[in-house]
Simulated assay, not measured.
Amino acid sequence: MNFIIEGGVFFMVPLLVLLVLVLALFVKGLKSNTEKNADLLKSISLFSLAFGVLGFILGMLVALDFISMSSQGVSPQILASGIKVAMFSPTFGLVIFVVGRLADIILRWKRN
């Protein structure tokens, strides 16, 4: 769970909440499998992906701003570390997207 803090609380905590919501919708779908539940599951998983990418873009813009203000330059190690941290939110968003889509596939398969 360290990646939640490292990736930035502003984007990672809402993504964690969205993951819990996707899992709850999947469990609810196992009990009452409706089209409305499947549509909501797909929408939330897609939103998670977009929100994660937004976190990456905003993080990179801030990092590039600090790099441009630096008078001494930036070492490759610091740059690589910053890119690694910036990749946490889109990766987590992608994981939530895949989980949501797999849940949707399972629920559709169960319905048919």
Rank of each mutant, 00 (worst) to 15 (best):
N2Q: 14
F3L: 15
I4T: 09
E6C: 07
G8V: 03
V9I: 15
V9Q: 13
M12Y: 05
M12C: 03
M12H: 01
V13M: 14
P14R: 14
L15K: 04
L19W: 08
V20F: 15
V20W: 12
L21Y: 11
L21T: 04
L23R: 01
L23I: 14
L23Y: 07
A24R: 07
A24I: 14
A24L: 15
L25G: 00
L25P: 05
F26K: 07
F26T: 01
V27L: 12
G29A: 10
G29C: 10
L30N: 07
N33R: 06
N33V: 10
N33W: 07
E35L: 13
N37G: 02
A38N: 12
A38T: 11
D39E: 14
L40Y: 06
L41Y: 02
L41K: 01
L41E: 03
K42Y: 07
K42E: 11
K42H: 09
S43N: 12
I44C: 02
S45F: 03
S45T: 09
S45A: 13
F47N: 04
F47L: 15
S48K: 02
S48L: 09
L49I: 02
A50S: 11
F51Y: 12
F51D: 03
G52F: 01
G52W: 00
V53W: 06
V53G: 09
V53H: 02
L54E: 06
G55N: 01
F56M: 14
I57W: 00
I57C: 08
L58G: 04
L58I: 13
G59I: 04
G59V: 05
M60K: 10
M60L: 15
M60D: 09
L61D: 07
V62Y: 01
V62F: 06
V62G: 09
L64C: 05
D65K: 13
F66C: 04
F66W: 07
S70P: 13
S70H: 09
S70R: 11
S71V: 12
Q72R: 10
Q72Y: 07
Q72V: 09
G73K: 12
G73E: 11
P76C: 05
I78W: 05
I78Q: 14
I78N: 12
I78G: 13
G82V: 08
G82Q: 08
G82P: 04
I83D: 05
K84P: 01
A86T: 09
M87V: 07
M87R: 03
F88T: 04
F88Q: 05
S89E: 02
P90K: 08
T91Q: 10
T91H: 09
F92H: 00
F92N: 04
V95E: 08
V95R: 06
I96R: 03
F97C: 13
F97Q: 12
F97A: 14
F97H: 11
V99A: 12
